[in-house]
């Protein structure tokens, strides 16, 4: 169980765990060896965790910790990206999506040294009809991309891949997103539809502030009471 869990981690994650355990990790270590090394260094019974630190911790009251550590002065370094090969797709509105991705460092290095490599590709599929797709060329330095989707009422999936020679290889596949129609449905609900429905829908749309025609702009959650804007201003 524990070994399985370690094996599912990325190399970057394993290195971090290794460093936390005080293991000296040399740069060319294989993943399997790293898992083995960490596995050997972990305490055998996890529930007895932190015995050493446990006792020590009791001497500290939170307030003392705060005073001693002065949390306000801490900087919070976070990774720019993660060492995993992965792509995610998010729907922004009925016509646009945002994709972001990561590629494992070792993979990037391999691709860069591949003489036949020509480019990284985002391949956007209409999920209802996989024969319909289009490609977007991206750079190694790119991390995310806004994509105009051709059809509403459809579903999309993106592959992150590359072209080497004349061969296309998939690196990762995204989650699926569904684009809404963003307009009134054509379908009438026979049980509920009546001759007044159209009129009520018209009335409901009187003064509709959103979507898409919201020039004068509606509510937004306020945040800064100290700064300039309560209601969102025009873009």
């Amino acid at each position: 169980m524990k070994r399985d869990f370690l094996e599912a981690l990325s190399v970057e994650e394993l290195c971090q765990v290794g460093r936390d355990l005080g293991i000296d990790i040399y740069s060319l270590i294989k993943k399997a060896d790293l898992v083995e090394l960490i596995f050997e260094n972990l305490e055998p019974e996890e529930e007895s965790n932190n015995l050493l630190i446990n006792g020590e911790g009791l001497k500290y009251s939170p307030a003392r910790c705060i005073a001693e550590e002065s949390l306000e002065s801490i900087e919070y370094p976070i990774p720019e990206r993660y060492d995993e090969t992965k792509i995610m797709l998010m729907l922004r509105d009925p016509d646009w999506a945002f994709a972001y991705w990561d590629i494992e460092t070792s993979l990037t290095a391999g691709l860069k040294s591949d003489e036949k490599f020509s480019s990284l590709i985002l391949r956007v599929y209409d999920n209802n009809d996989r024969s319909f797709y289009f490609d977007i060329k991206v750079q190694f330095s790119d991390m995310g991309w806004y994509i105009k989707l051709p059809r509403r009422n459809s579903s999309y999936i993106i592959e992150l891949g590359y072209i080497s020679g004349d061969r296309y290889t998939v690196l990762a596949e995204s989650n699926t997103i569904y684009t809404p129609g963003g307009s009134l449905a054509a379908e009438k609900d026979l049980k509920w539809y009546s001759d007044t429905t159209e009129r009520l829908i018209d009335l409901s749309q009187t003064g509709l502030l959103s979507p898409e025609k919201s020039e004068d702009v509606i509510s937004q959650r306020i945040i800064s009471f100290s700064s300039s804007s309560y209601i969102q201003h025009k873009e």
Binding site: L9, E13, V17, D20, N49, C65
Partner: peptide, 8 residues
């Protein structure tokens, strides 16, 4: 994961 939680 490393079972090295700094309790303070």
């Amino acid at each position: 994961i490393a079972d090295r939680i700094e309790e303070t």
